[in-house]
Amino acid sequence: MNEELDSQLSAMFDNELPPAECELLARRLSRDTDLKSRWGRYAVIGAVIRAERGVTLDGMVAGRVSAALSSEPALSADAAQPAGRGLQYHWWQPLAGAGLAAGVAAVSILWLRGQAVPGGSHAVARAMTVVNSPLAALRVQSPLPSAGVTVPDSFVVPPVPRRPMMVVPATELADYVVAHSAFSWPVSRGNLLSALMVSEPGTSSTPAGSEKPAPGVQGNAIQNPK
């Protein structure tokens, strides 16, 4: 049974699963935690195998890293009760986030299947980043879709700015990060420089006074300004 599901997941990522089966699998994905976890692993491995961003690791390494990550439980949230004034934390948020994330994951597959997405596998990886974040999922304004209901695209696509994108030059942002790194904790410094080395700074812009971007969401920008 697992092999069959794995085969279906693999076919889905290769864009070879018939639309009807894809829809069924997406619905099952929204209910089945284990399947959702496997879907996440497939996304990572798929991204690596497709050599996105020039990744040339073999699938085993990526799989091990991904598997290690998914096998490690999250740190206890008990110690993370908020002390700040501005942010409220409720016990139900992680549960709601997980539930919503599952729903949004299913929706994203349906949406991705239905769109001719420029960028192909890049777009899949980005969508995965967005929908796997409980915080991002919590920002979804609409109620959860139920099976058979037509799904609005806005669940997947971050809010469209009311004015055209304005891109911070990547080199300028890189320079800020480099200048900041001199004042960072050594561990953070390592993270900062490593991230700068492997990633393209993403930028999203919104007019003054508009809603702030969702935490954890890159917006719709991985820009190549130059």
Binding site: S204, T206, P207
Partner: peptide
């Protein structure tokens, strides 16, 4: 345009 613009960006897990 002369309009004030707020921008957010990220590099890895760091934000600007």
């Amino acid at each position: 345009s002369g309009e004030a613009v707020m921008e957010s960006a990220r590099v890895g897990s760091s934000y600007a």
